[in-house]
Design a binder for these strands. Structure first.
Lengths: 260, 260
DNA sequence: AAATTCGGTTCCGAATAATGGAACTTTTTA
DNA sequence: TAAAAAGTTCCATTATTCGGAACCGAATTT
């Protein structure tokens, strides 16, 4: 008892990071009062906390005094991305998969009930190649997310998704956990997941789970517009996607195992 | 006196962020003892600090207990990058400049004595398009850096660069602040900066300063291999680079000014 | 096999930093 | 010009961090 759901506050840092999330992940600069309304801190406390985040360059203020994400975040992330071992191991396989299918290939890892995209390979390098990298999407309505979830057993799954809100993005989005669990069961049996316009209208994908032996849950997917990426195509690609996932897992294993 | 150089510690957050820098910006996973040697914290303290960073997903541990950057950094950074107003305003101009010159175009902002790259446009999308974004380089030996520095007066400049170590990357790298200041004077008079293999052998560039009216110092540059990007080419491109910088500043101004 | 070192973790009184209510200043609105 | 709202500073109280020392387990040495 006592612990309401999953609200561990890691002391000072936890509070500051929650505040950083609030401001940095918002989609526009926020004024002090906006933040005050959303955080439940007293004025004095909030003011000092924001000052500290600005002092550390995790937030910045524009000339109107509004708060927005600081450049230090970008710096920290770039190194971590560039040297991410999982991403490096997976990359060549993503390229192969892209070549085989001609469509966009994603690599995403599960974090809580969300998927965070670690890499993306597109055929024709379109306008903003990296637009997706680092983005978070709900696990329950994305191919990569459902694939990753399928590697958990029902108990873990329910724990992880407790409190999840099933937002109806499209008419095909899962409405509740029962519906999702049914889907997951099929995915487990079959070895790959489909996303048929569940997150975004007109976008379909096929994905396979990756579970690294350090406990990381992730997935690879091939994604494209529904008019081009038909059910038949997705079926046809499923073995390729599963193959890519298998290769990535094997490379991870042989790369990390021996060094032990 | 008292304040040794510029070592403000923002209480708890400052210490934790210094530690995060140490671990996340390292180029390999670090064991507890490695970190202990580099940070000057007592064992107990360090252990708790690392635990907090891991708890908050700013760091992770691999199966050997070594510490490495966490995925939350990537998530925070992606939103901040995607919504960065300066970058959005600059982007079309970077593309134009890329088209005009055929070489790689960079956008970087000054942070302390370093430049952090905010965007990059390449002609032929080479292997890792985004490899550079978020990376930091010393200001004194990069085109973008020197251009940005040239917008400061000598006093600010000396303050900012006090304590700077002039690492000799190549035989052309500035060795001391006097040499740099001479160069900066020329840059100020001329309106653009050259980097003739000062940071990396075989790489040259021409850059122009950008100063937003919110005090941000930044720069645009066109960069390429010395064998292709000759002095004549750089001379020829200088007006184009200055033009791009001017357009970016104007767009920033007209975008932000009216809203005031 | 026993002893020792090494790498990492836990504990708890003392030291330090964060908290938050209230007073104060500046800016905006009426 | 007054009044309200927004933002900032102060400081006694409270909570958190600090850090030395003890502890644990695994690997290494004797």
């Amino acid at each position: 008892m006592g612990e309401t759901s999953r609200s561990r506050e890691t002391g000072t840092l936890g509070k500051l990071m929650a505040l950083l999330d609030l401001v940095a992940l918002a989609d526009r600069p926020m004024r002090f009062t906006d933040i005050l309304a959303l955080s439940d801190q007293p004025r004095g406390t909030l003011h000092r906390q924001l000052s500290h985040l600005v002092e550390e360059d995790l937030l910045e203020t524009d000339r109107e005094g509004r708060y927005l994400p600081g450049i230090r975040l970008l710096h920290l992330a770039s190194r971590s991305w560039a040297r991410n071992e999982f991403r490096m191991v997976a990359e060549p396989h993503l390229r192969v998969l892209q070549g085989q299918t001609g469509e966009t290939v994603h690599l995403g890892v599960l974090r809580g009930d969300e998927v965070i995209y670690l890499d993306k390979v597109e055929g024709r390098q379109s306008v903003r190649m990296y637009s997706q990298i680092g983005n978070a999407s709900p696990a329950y309505c994305t191919g990569v997310g459902k694939a990753a979830l399928s590697a958990l057993d029902d108990l873990d799954l329910k724990t992880r998704l407790s409190g999840m809100v099933f937002h109806p993005y499209t008419e095909y989005t899962h409405r509740d956990i029962e519906s999702l669990l049914e889907d997951i069961n099929v995915i487990r049996a079959r070895g790959h997941a489909f996303d048929l316009e569940e997150h975004e209208s007109g976008i379909c994908c096929v994905a396979a789970p990756i579970h690294s032996d350090d406990g990381t849950l992730a997935g690879v997917s091939v994604t494209g517009p529904a008019y081009r990426v038909t059910s038949e195509k997705l079926q046809e690609w499923a073995p390729l996607v599963r193959g890519a996932a298998a290769s990535i897992m094997q490379d991870m294993h042989s790369r990390l195992g021996p060094r032990r």
